[in-house]
Design a protein around this nucleic acid. Sequence first.
DNA 1: TGTACATCAGTGAACGCGCGTTCACTGATGTAC
DNA 2: TGTACATCAGTGAACGCGCGTTCACTGATGTAC
Lengths: 200, 200
Amino acid sequence: MGHSQADKREGHDRIVRIAAKRFREDGLDRLSIADLMNEAGLTHGGFYKHFDSRNDLVLQALRVALHESSTPDAGRSRKAKGTVPTLQSVVKGYLSKSHRDSPGAGCAVGALISDIGRAGSDAKDLYTKRVQQNLDSVAALIGDPDDSADRAKAIVVLSALAGAIGLARAVSDDRLSNDILCTVRDFLTASFGDKSVSRF
Amino acid sequence: MGHSQADKREGHDRIVRIAAKRFREDGLDRLSIADLMNEAGLTHGGFYKHFDSRNDLVLQALRVALHESSTPDAGRSRKAKGTVPTLQSVVKGYLSKSHRDSPGAGCAVGALISDIGRAGSDAKDLYTKRVQQNLDSVAALIGDPDDSADRAKAIVVLSALAGAIGLARAVSDDRLSNDILCTVRDFLTASFGDKSVSRF
DNA sequence: TGTACATCAGTGAACGCGCGTTCACTGATGTAC
DNA sequence: TGTACATCAGTGAACGCGCGTTCACTGATGTAC
């Protein structure tokens, strides 16, 4: 338990990273400061040496969660992360069982979709920027990010991805959950996967 | 403030309906029993004459929320509700601004998608049944609910609807929010709207 | 139809608990000389 | 290089508050005679 400046930065980062994970798993409301600090190996009193308030933490952790899960990477396997992403590889990773079962390490746009609708405007703004960036990335994978038809396709892809991962996580029937993952994955790769053969 | 059996039933229904609305607006965690009873015109102590516990309320209200928002109707305008639903009319209602802006009166599958993933198995089971029913309804609108290709299309439609309404609510940029609504609406009606010209 | 009585929906004070936040304190860190 | 001192990350008790839940009580309802 050091007291140096480097120790503080390290502790701060650890707290934020844990929160970024827990928020994606449990939503923005359920994580208590005592639990968080305990998980970080600290006591709850020190929290305010790092953050102005709980809401300050939410914003910082949300920023980190959104950052470490930029869509083209979220859910992709470690192996796939070294390679050049394609729409196929992104969709395959996003709608994988491992991504479904590890929301804390996955895409915050998908994991927090209902929560952000009820959150403050600062959180919504952060989220919105990430969605815009994701639309750009996906549009670039499909074709030309400046082409409005490709942007439209990207909107459809993002909506289908977010809806499918959410439904797959919500549903208690394993067969149905897997079915949602596979069906939407196959549909998106078939419809948008190949730049030259897009049917939309 | 009557004390008759009819009064009790009426009060019970009122409490559950208010909860069903508030849960869709604010999620399953934020509604307090005191607030709920107050909104129903009662005092908090009487709550346990109606429910075993808060979780009992959650389950009853979830059941009602899921029931009064079976997908083919959720979000459809009052005018449209009298007519025979088509995929077009359902999609149009679901991805309308009025549905986006009134989650408390809309589809619980969309409004609670993140929340149910973190809820208990009873809640997940109720939700899952509704999703299955919605898949059947949508598959019937597209073609044959027993045909696996039409079922696959229904899965895509439901995922896109849930993702689009969630994103449209989460995003703070009005232009983007409207764009998501319109783009996904146009895509779904163009791709699945006409039974004879489906391209998937 | 009228009376006596059991039931029970609704009331509001009270409970223990966990929450976010504050604060006086400790002791390692980093700096000035 | 060694010493004195200011800083400040981390500690843990304490705060007020709102939560879900319990309970003794009230008085209208519904029933038995």
